[in-house]
Structure formats: C-alpha cells, structure tokens
Design a protein around this nucleic acid. Sequence first.
RNA 1: GGCCCGUUGGUCAAGCGGCUAAGACAUCGCCCUCUCACGGCGAAAACGGGAGUUCGAUUCUCCCACGGGUCACCA
Length: 549
Amino acid sequence: MDNNYLADLLYPNIHTLPEDMEARYPKRQLPEGAKVTRFAPSPTGFLHLGNLYGAFTDERLAHTSGGVFYLRIEDTDAKRTVPNGVELIIDTLAKLGVNFDEGAIKNGEDKGAYGPYRQSERAEIYQTYAKQLIREGKAYPCFCTEEEIAAMREKQEALKLTPGYYGEYAVWRDAPIEKIEEKLNAGVPFVLRFRSEGSIENKMKFNDQIKGEINVTENDIDHVILKSDGIPTYHFAHAVDDHLMGTTHVVRDESWLSTLPFHIQLFKALGFKLPKYCHTAQVMKLDNGNKRKISKRKDPEFAATFYHEQGYPAAVTREYLITLLNSNFEEWRIANPTAPIEDFKFTTKKMSVSGSLFDMDKLNDISKNVISRMTAEEVYENVLAWAKDFDADFADKLTVDADMAIAALSIGRGGAKPRKDIARWNEVQSYMGFLWDEYFSIIDEIPDKFDKADIKAALNKYLEIYSEEDDQISWFDKIKALASELGYAPETKLYKKNPEEYKGHVGDISMFLRIAVTGKASSPDMYEIMRILGADRVKARITAYAETI
RNA sequence: GGCCCGUUGGUCAAGCGGCUAAGACAUCGCCCUCUCACGGCGAAAACGGGAGUUCGAUUCUCCCACGGGUCACCA
C-alpha cells in the first residue's frame, strides 16, 4: 500500500511537516539541570486535592531548579469541558500561592512561546505528526463503530482473553486501500490507530523518578491516537505536547503507570526523547473501612475550593500537602517555623511511594500553627475577607467594630507560646461572637453542684467591687477576696489540699463570671475580655444573668 | 480476571543488614493554671504471613495474603 497516498487521503488539509513544528518550537535554552514541568488538568470545573498534590510537585520541581512551570489545558474531551473551567483552575491555584511562568491565562489567551496551551487549539499540530506516522506505516484508520468495538470486547471477555484492539481483533490494521476508500467515500467516520509492533512477551525495566525501578510489559494494543473529530486522545497529545513544549519531567498520578508502555512506544515512533517520569502516589480516603482513591464526584470535601470555603488559610493547604509530599518537610518546618516554604529543599527522592490517607486532624493542627503565627491584624483581615464571601452579617459586624475585633484577637497572641484556638475562619464567629450583643447567648450552664445562692451572691458582689480602673493583678485579687468571703478557696492549691474545707475555689467563682459575661465555660483571658466589652456591658450581662439564677 | 504498584503504631512517616525501631498528629495521664488554649513531662501504640540468603534480617530474594490502581474515540 502507498502510505503517502493514504496519508493525503485521510488528512488532505494538512500541509505541514514535523520539521515545521520543530522549527516553530525550538528547544528551550535553560541552564543545566533546570526542570520544565507542567500542570495539565482538564477544565472540568473541579480541582481536587490530588490535582493540587501534583501541581505543588510540578511547581516546586521547576522553581527550585531555575526551570519553567507552565499550565496546559487538556480539553480534548469536549463533553467534559465546562465554560469557566480554566478560570477556576487559575484562580484556585493563585489563591494557594501557585503561579505559572507560562501557559493558558484568562479570557482564552496565552502567555509564552510554546502555545497554544489549550489542546483543542492544536489540532493541526497533532495531525501533522499523525500524518507523518501514516506515511511511515505506523498508524492506520479504523472504521469500527462503537457497537462493533463493544461486541468485540464482549467476545474477548467470554473467551477470557485480554480485551483490546490487537492481533486478529485489529480488523482494520491491514485493510486494503480499496476498502478504506470505500468507507471514506461513503462518509463513514474513522479514528486513527497506532500500529503497535510490541509484544506482551517483552518485559523491561523502567526507572521512575519516584517509584524507582518498575517492571513493564510492552504494549501490543493498537490504541486510538486521533479520535473521529481529528482531536487526539490523551496519549498522543501527551507525546506531542510534552516534546514540543520541552517538558523535562512529567508529574502525574500513578494510575498512568499502566499506559506508560504505550507512551514509551509513541515517543520512540515519533522520534522524541523520553522525558523523566514522576508517578505520584494518590491521596486516599477511608470509605466504609476501605482505602479508596479520592474521587471528584463522590467526595466534595476534597475539592480544592472546599478548604477556601471552610476558611483554611491558603498557605495551610499547601503546607499540609507538602508534609504528605516530602516526608522530611515536617521536621524542617519544626526547625524553621517561620521560614518561607520556598526555602525548603524539595526532592522527588523523599516522595512517598504509597498512597496516604487524608488526615483532617493534621490539617487542623497545621492550620492552628500557621494562624497562631499571624498578627491580630492579619487574622482580622483574613477573617473579614472570608466572612465577606460566606457570612455577610459577621462581615458587617467586623467592619463596624474593627478595633474591638482586633483587640479580642490580640489576646494571648504573639510571644513564644501563642494561643492556638483557631483552625479555620469559620470558627471565629463562635470563638468571639459574644463580643456582639446580637450573637451573645448563654451556651454553657453552671453545674448543679453549686449552690444557687452562692452563685447569685458572687455575681452581685462582683458588681459592687468591679472597677474598670483595676490592673490585672488587683482585678484578680478582688475575685480571690470574693471567693474567700463566700467560703471558696482563694487559691486552687489550697482547695486541692483540703477540698472538704471549701465549697469550691476561685476558679469556680471565675466560671460563674465567665458564663455570665461570655456565655461559655471557656474563653480567653477574662480580664482582657471585660476591658474590651467595657464596664457597662459587663455589668449589664452579669445583672441579667443573676436574675435568671 | 490479566497486568502493574504498594504493605513500619489509629493517621502521616524515619529507617536503607546489627538501633532499647525516630519524629509529628490524634488518644490518655500528670504538671502549669481563673476556664480554655499554649507550654512542659510521661504513657500506650508498629515492622501483614511463610520460606530462603546471611553469623545476623524491618531492610535483600521468592511465595502467599491483604490493600490500591488500570484495562475507552475520559483524562
């Protein structure tokens, strides 16, 4: 068969040659060791933790080596593409502190010399290489319908054979040109298949940057490389794009391991140099006691936007994912609590080979630490920004009473042992909502073991002795005196030594006041809170509460 | 089912032929303490199983079990 004739027959509108493409996309001039990586998602309108895991790896690999990190949009499947998918990807990553050097940007535009960066706009490029493969006898058209393929598959499964388009099942592999022309003239759509010369008898070793040495078997299936609409499948686009765009390191999750042999084959057939591969472990979730790869459909809590909605600071998601990514990050972070994350020496050598379960406790811990290092003003700005999107009423209150909010957020902040109350911005309202009369309510109750008369007496006497002028020491001395007067130990230690001598201790008296003033049995420093609330509101709350006893 | 990958405490994990098998989170106890949070001290908690190689295996090899992934004109 005349392959040149067939090539022109199939793709008559393609007049470019691989050489033209090579000239259009010259090799990148980068320093020795510089890595070129890409984040290549489908614009499905959803980014999950697994995507971020890969994106962070890509970003660190490129930027710690003086390389390039770019965004390529894999929108070859029109069915899965959503209108603002690209914008969502860019915005989400930008919020998390991940920025691209080149690639797709908003409004359908590109930045960089290796575009277009949307695969849907690269049809001519793919077809140029595909046409060359046809000329070389390495690809051929297949006119099977979906039904025929499905029937073939069923038959193979019934015979317990490996399903797929190969061997005797590759019915169009050696079809005569007349038959092809006949279908073509009848307007029957076709896909272009790669002519595999591989055999499953051939095993080989492959070195993955993360997994190390792995065993692979040659591919013997004639996979589709161009779909009937002339748009490539992932595999073909991967080979062509990563070659032309100069990708040195392909980071993707380990589910791609199974198609790696096919990719190796494609690169070879196209005469491309194989990039390094980094197959990452997957982030898992526990589902009914079983580990499972997280899924975009079933697990909304793994949407990248979920953490934003919950009010986790952007840096936290990144920090957490890097603890999963590089096992020595945590120790580095303990040694360098305030260093920018960029200073950490990221390496694929330290990447985990097995999938890890997402741990919300750990995320919360990291978040508390990150937030505890912020100034009150920073916390305020963050909470306000979050509330504007998710709690408008709280945002209004924060805006009106900014000074009060910042003062409250300052309690126990700074210094070597800062408070760590807040893990997410959506907790702040309940943490300090009592500052506003509209949010204030009595939530906790005083245990029944305390005598009602004592409680009432304590509250009323406190009203008499409370003075805004007191410093913290004299303020507390007054409470101690009050405790003694009512038969409560003025020191906790005294009570512990001889509990039978007292009705309770100064801590209990404080609790009465705390519940009256904040509505809760636990709160940050009471002295500070009373000062922030002001004498009038403190007294009003105590008076009101005393009446309910 | 075929093929591929994985398996150290509840979770994340160090380890890379000889260790009382790190550390972090979570849990529990004690201390500090007006509550809480912080902090300090401590406890409990692990090499999936079986062969082999070796003077010696968590570490190397094989088998098994279990877990995961993948078998599309989806990526």
